[in-house]
Amino acid sequence: MTFSARRIFAILQKDYKDLSRNLYVTTTLFMPLLMAALFGRMGMGTISSYYIVINMGFILVATYVQSALIAEEKEKNTLRGLMLSPASTMEIFCGKSLLSFIATAVVVTGSILLSNYNPRNMAVIAIALLLSAVFYVGLGTLIGLFTKSVMEASVVIVPVMLIFTSGSLLIPLIEKYPVLAVVEYMPNLQLLELADRVETGAGLGDTLLHLLVILAWVLVIHAVAAYVYKKRMVDE
């Protein structure tokens, strides 16, 4: 099987056009930007408030857009047609992930600018955000595979959004119940902790552990998505 960039870009372009006309999805893209502008003007300059907005951007753009893209193909019965075409599964998912990834990059960058967040070490934060974006796109793929329609995907996204954006609120709870310490390894909390450390002047070496944990999440989520795809698509 050949891996063709032409087909990936064809899928990317098609999905971009399709998405840009889907008001239902595009309006959610503006949510994080709106929140960022609001938080920025209100002068809530804590790291955790920045990251509430950034995480919301990840969930609403990377995860939600990706899951909607996949669920819609299933809902409209077009995925089968794509799979019968010369495009391989890898190419189909690459095309879709690439679009979600680009959208995420644009929206997250936009919301960082709007909320006036200036990290002390931009490079480390950029790497961490990039890895997180890949993780959230993978999460979106997984949700897209489990759901059958855009409607279903937008319902599933609500608890996911609660879990991943309320990260900082969980910290007091962890102090009270030590069992919950596991939660600290969640990618959103790792990102938050990393950002905190960067503000205190940590470099790449000091934050390597956090980056590795996020990287592990990236690998796990994509492996799970690939497994679920194999299991589910054979049945259908």
Binding site: D18, R21, K76, T78, R80, G81, L84
Partner: peptide, 13 residues
């Protein structure tokens, strides 16, 4: 090539 009865379309394009 398949011409299936129940084939989906990208209706927004």
């Amino acid at each position: 090539g398949f011409l299936l009865l129940e084939e989906g379309h990208y209706t927004r394009l």
